[in-house]
Design a protein around this nucleic acid. Structure first.
Lengths: 110, 110
DNA sequence: GTATCGTACAACCAAATGGTTGTAGATCAG
DNA sequence: CTGATCTACAACCATTTGGTTGTACGATAC
């Protein structure tokens, strides 16, 4: 049962966003607690602009959300994006199990 | 409980490999049935060499395996890679649920 | 008001990506 | 043996990516 209405481009963006260690670390951190962009930037050995770009990539992939608070931009984990990624991998697993089932059937027949 | 011994680079390769629609399609197909590299190449509007590169990316990410049979190279889905990716997302989900639990606790206290 | 902080964004650069064509080595068919 | 098929890989090209520095602007502190 296909539930999500995700275009190929959406899925590309999702996995692409997850394909970087710094971004995965950001996702973990903002899931546990709130961070401003500069708060995040302070954690990594790279420029503010670089971290800001990473956050933008995660936002486009629906893995985090940003909310303006005063002059800060608060970054939070977005469960929806993560859930979508998981559901996609679940579909692949389902295909795999079907295949395993068919093989078992064939062996049972033979 | 962390089970896998995956380096950041391994995880990068995994998600990077999944971040392309052609490659995801290849993974689905070779999970369902066996294909030679040229058999796969016939399915897509791109050169044999391009498809071969995609297969190589998937192989490095442990999402497919190749096995020589005569002059053909048979490509099959590799469940291990897929399972690793899923387990990673499961860990993220676990972090999310812990967070949700903490929030529930705070609300219960307050 | 002025200085500072947090953010956004442009311009730039090196490296990686996703594609191409061409060449060459194995393997199989006749 | 010869020719066709399957694969691998190099060289090349355009675009994207992940980083940099610099500039600009709104919000805050003094």
């Amino acid at each position: 049962m296909v539930v999500d209405q995700l275009s190929d481009a959406d899925v590309d963006r999702l996995f692409q966003a997850l394909a970087d260690a710094t971004r995965r670390d950001i996702v973990r951190r903002v899931t546990v607690a709130e961070y401003s962009v500069s708060g995040l930037a302070a954690l990594y050995a790279m420029s503010f602009a670089a971290v800001q770009k990473h956050v933008a990539v995660l936002e486009r992939a629906s893995l985090v959300t940003k909310e303006k608070r005063g002059r800060e931009q608060i970054v939070r984990g977005n469960h929806e994006g993560l859930a979508k990624a998981r559901r996609l991998l679940d579909e692949y697993e389902a295909i795999w199990r079907q295949r395993a089932g068919r093989i078992a059937d064939i062996l049972a027949e033979g």
